[in-house]
Design a protein around this nucleic acid. Structure first.
Lengths: 335, 335
DNA sequence: GACCAAAATGACAGCGCTGTCAATTTATCT
DNA sequence: AGATAAATTGACAGCGCTGTCATTTTGGTC
C-alpha cells in the first residue's frame, strides 16, 4: 500500500541511497537524476517513514513546546507560530505542559525527554528561567530556545521582545496625549516582565522630567481581580491620575470595570492603557489601547532557530522581535 | 550514554525479548523475572527509543489533535485533557492546526498524515464534520475520535456533550427564577451547536407552556460584536425581555456591555445567561451565570478512546459527558 | 519417575531508512 | 590519449526495537 524508498529506487532505476540523497537535499546528485527521482516519488505518493528515518539518523523531526500554565491566548499564539515554522520544514510539534508547582515536575520533564527523542525544545516563561529544567536540558544535550528569558547569553540563542521599550512607548504616548498625572499598575512580582515594564514606565516619565507619584504606582498580579483592587485604590481619592497604564490587559479591564462602576467615563475622564492585546482588549467597551506582543513571531522564530541553527560565528544570541502600540478607544487627549 | 534494551537484558541476565515483554506489559513473564527487569531498567534509567519501537511495531505512540481555529480557551482545554491522558500511557500529543478555508487544507492533512505515522487522531469541530477530511482518514485507516460531531454513528466512537439538555437547564433555571419574558441569542448558523442550544431553549419554554416571542429570538454568530448588535435590538424597545440567554459567553458579554451603556442594571433589571464558562465569564462584572462545558473531559476521553479502544461489542458509540450549570451574578429572581 | 501441557524464555530476522566507504562515471588537464 | 581529480552512485551494515517461532523450563498427573 504505502510505498517505500525501495519502490521509488526501483522505479527510478537508482539505488536507495540516491533516493535518500535527493529527498534530503544532499549535494552531489546529478540534476537529471534528482529530477527523475522527484518525479517518481511524486507519482508514487511516496513520503518517508519518520520512525525509520529517525532511527537511522537519530533525528526525530519533532520539536517540543514546554509550557507551564500561561494564558490560553499566549500558548495558542506561540503554538501557531511554532507549528507554521515546523510545517515549512516537515517538522512536527509535540506539546507538553509542565506544572512547576509540583515537586515531581522536574523529574517529569526528565522522563519525558529521555523517552521522547525531540530535536529541540521551545521553553516559554516561566520555564525558561528554571534552573533545574535548564540543567536537565544541558545534561541531555538537547538544543533549546528560551522565549523571553530573564537572563540571556547562556550560550544558546533566545527570542524575546523589548518590554522596557514597549512600556516606554505606551507611557510616552499617554504623555503626548497631554497626561501628566499617570498611574501604573504593576504585574505579578515573580514574573520577569513585570519589572521591565515598570522600568519602561519610569524611564519615559524621567525622560520628560515628570515626577512619579508613588501613590499612583500600585501592585498587581496580572489578574483581572488585582486590576480591580488597584483601580479602586487609584480612583477612590479625589486626587486621582488622569491616565492609568496597567501592565496587562486583564488588569486594564479591571480598571475599566471599576471606572464604569464609579461613573468615571473612559476615555473622557480617564485614559487606560493595557499590554498584550489579548482578545479581551477588543471585547471591552471601550476597546483597549494596548501593546501587541510578537507572540506568534516568537514561536515562529524559536522553532526556526531549532530547525536551522545559525553557525556559531554569526549567531545572534538574542533575537528581539518587534512589538506594536495599538491605539484604540480607551485613551484620548487630556482635555 | 543512553542505555539500550540490550544493556538492560545483559544486566538482568535475560534476553532482549524478555525485557521487551516486561516493558510492554505482555503476559507470560514470571513474576520474579519481571521484577528483576524492572529493577535493572530503573537503575539504568532506561527508557525505550520511540523511533525504534515505532519502526519495529508500526506504532508511533503519537496522537494528533487536528483543529481549525477555535477559541484559544477551547483548544487549550482539549489539549490539556488529551495530554493528561497521553501522559498516563506514555503517549505524546502532536498538534496540527488546519485551515479549512484554504483549498489546500485537505491536501495538507493528507500529506501530514502520510508523513506522520500517528496512532490516532482527535478531531474537533468543525473538522469533525468535514466530509473530505473524514474520507482521508478512512482511506488512511487511521483511527479517529470526533469531538462533538454533528452526526454520530459513523462506526467510530465519539465524545460530546448534550447541548440541548444544557440549554434546557439554563432556560429552565431562568424560568424558575420567575422570568417569563425570555430572549435568546443564537450562535453562528454554521456551527452545529447553535441549533442544538436553540432547541434546548425551545423545549424548556414549551415544557412550561411559555410562548416564544420571535422578536426576542435574535441571530448572532458567537462573536462579542454580534452579541452587542443583538442586545441593542432586544433592549431598545420598551417591551423587552427580563432575561436573555446568549448562546455563548462572548455574546452574553455583549449583552452585559449594552445593558450597562443603556443604564439597565444586571441582574436587577435584566438577567443574562451565557454558555461555555470561558475565563471571560469571571472577568465580567457582574460575573456570568453560564454553562460549563466538559471540554477538558472530552479531550481526555477522546485520547483514552484512541489509546485503549473498547472492544467492538461493548463499545458505546457516543460518550456524552456532563456539563454543569454555574450560577453567578448575572442572573437573579425576577422582582 | 515418566509423561505431557502450559508457561516462560530466547534466537533471529527485519521494520525503512541513513551513514560509511568503496566503486564507478565524468570532467579537467597535460 | 592518458592520467588525475572530482563528481556521482551504489553496496551494505546497522540504528533499537518487536514479531515469529523454536526451545527450554515448570508444574501437574498417573
Amino acid at each position: 500500500m504505502k510505498s517505500t524508498i525501495t519502490d521509488v529506487a526501483k522505479q527510478a532505476g537508482v539505488s536507495m541511497k540516491t533516493v535518500s540523497r535527493v529527498l534530503n537535499n544532499e549535494p552531489n546528485v546529478a540534476k537529471k537524476t534528482r529530477e527523475r527521482v522527484l518525479e517518481v516519488a511524486k507519482q508514487l505518493r511516496y513520503s518517508p517513514n519518520l520512525a525509520a528515518r529517525g532511527l537511522a539518523s537519530s533525528k526525530s523531526y519533532l520539536l517540543a513546546l514546554l509550557y507551564d500554565n500561561p494564558s490560553p491566548n499566549y500558548i495558542a499564539n506561540i503554538q501557531k507560530g511554532a507549528i507554521d515554522a515546523c510545517r515549512n520544514n516537515r517538522y512536527h510539534l509535540v506539546i507538553e505542559p509542565v506544572s512547576m508547582g509540583e515537586k515531581s515536575a522536574v523529574e517529569a520533564v526528565d522522563l519525558l525527554l529521555e523517552r521522547l527523542p525531540v530535536d529541540g525544545i521551545i521553553l516559554t516563561p516561566p520555564l525558561c528561567d528554571d534552573e533545574d529544567i535548564l540543567a536537565i536540558l544541558g545534561r541531555l544535550k538537547i538544543p533549546y530556545v528560551p522565549v523571553a528569558p530573564a537572563v540571556e547569553g547562556r550560550e544558546v540563542s533566545s527570542v524575546k521582545m523589548d518590554d522596557v521599550q514597549a512600556a516606554y512607548e505606551m507611557t510616552e504616548f499617554l504623555i503626548r496625549q497631554g497626561h501628566r498625572k499617570l498611574g501604573f499598575i504593576k504585574g505579578h512580582p515573580e514574573h520577569n516582565a513585570s519589572e521591565l515594564r515598570y522600568q519602561g514606565f519610569v524611564q519615559a516619565m524621567n525622560a520628560v522630567g515628570l515626577e512619579i507619584n508613588q501613590e499612583w504606582v500600585v501592585a498587581g498580579d496580572f489578574s483581572f481581580r488585582s486590576g480591580v483592587a488597584a483601580a479602586e485604590k487609584l480612583l477612590s481619592s479625589a486626587s486621582r491620575p488622569t491616565a492609568i497604564f496597567a501592565s496587562n490587559d486583564d488588569m486594564a479591564a479591571g480598571v475599566v470595570s471599576v471606572a464604569s462602576r464609579l461613573g468615571i467615563s473612559v476615555p473622557q475622564e480617564l485614559s487606560v492603557g493595557g499590554f498584550d492585546d489579548t482578545p479581551l482588549a477588543q471585547i471591552l467597551y471601550p476597546q483597549l489601547t494596548t501593546i501587541k506582543q510578537p507572540i506568534y513571531e516568537m514561536g515562529h522564530r524559536a522553532a526556526e532557530l531549532l530547525i536551522r541553527p545559525p553557525n556559531e560565528d554569526d549567531r545572534l544570541h538574542s533575537y528581539c522581535l518587534d512589538h506594536k502600540l495599538i491605539v484604540r478607544d480607551s485613551t484620548s487627549e487630556k482635555n
